[in-house]
Structure formats: C-alpha cells, structure tokens
Amino acid sequence: MIKTETVVGLGDMRVSADPEEEIICYGLGSCVGVALFDRTTGIAALAHVVLPDSSDRAVTKPGRFADTAVPDMLRQMKELGADLNRTTARLVGGAQLAGVASGRPAFSIGPENVEATKTALTRAGVRIQASDTGGGDGRTVHFRIGSGELEIHSKDKHTLL
C-alpha cells in the first residue's frame, strides 16, 4: 500500500526506508535515474542525475552529477543502516533525441550520463542488476520501496525492472 509519493526533480535525490513510499522521477530524457536498493533492509535511493561529471565545481546538489550522486546516496543509505555489500543498482534513462547527429553537447549527454554512472558504481563496488537506457524516448520511473519494484513508463512501453 503506497501512502507517500515523493517526486525527485532534476538533480535531486531521495533516500528512504519507508515501505509505503514510492519515489518517482518524471520525464527522464538524457538524465539518468539511478536506483539503489538493499533488499534485506529495504533501504532505497533514487537520484535524477543530469550531468556526468561535477568537474571540481562547488556542488550544492550532489544528485545533479553522476560522480557525486552515487557516493552521496551510498553514504546516506549506510547512515540508515544499509549493507552496501548487498546493495544493487538499476539504471533508467540516458536517451538521445532521435534524428540528431550534430555532435552538440546537449545530445551526447545521455550516453555520457550512463557511462559516468556505471563508472561511479564500479568504483563504489556496487553491482548493476539491470538497466533500461539509451534509445530516443523519455521515461518515467516509479520506485516502490516496499516491493523493490521499479516500474518504467515510456511512450510505447511499460516495463518492470
């Protein structure tokens, strides 16, 4: 039974152990939804990553960058009691606008976000359990903490990860 819906906007993240909570990222295009979950404790995190690399910027919102979102989510999960050795990741998003091959930065950010997130997860020793990334369509992610289920809606598809 879902009693709380928390929307995670651009560059935000949410860490929670409430089994009646659902965390949602709407309209992921080139952004990547990074879902972390420790199934044994039921502690979950979802970040809406916008850019691959903080590049030494002063970071006010760690969820904005792949290289800062992953360690910050893991730190917060650990504080709530998660076992990081059992924590796994699922990735969603990282699309590219269809029909564009101009090489403009805005259009290569999706794949770069996916790669940077994978690198950050590997560095942290977190296994990637599943992913639904790339393509040209936007995605919305619903992460139900109680079941650990990740439901993804896009234009023509409705999938569970």
Binding site: Y26, C31, V100, P105, G110, G138
Partner: peptide
C-alpha cells in the same frame, strides 16, 4: 540554426538535454 528535431514526449525529457547543456 541546426536542423530541427520534432519530438512528442514528456516535457521533462524534451527539455532536459537543453537544460543539462545550460547547467554545465
């Protein structure tokens, strides 16, 4: 101006490539 791209999708996904570019 670059060639146009026409896309029907959620506002978030339509805008976020441009917004990410600006956020750099």
């Amino acid at each position: 101006v670059s060639p146009p791209v026409v896309v029907t999708d959620m506002v978030g996904s339509v805008l976020d490539g441009a917004l990410a570019d600006l956020m750099i």
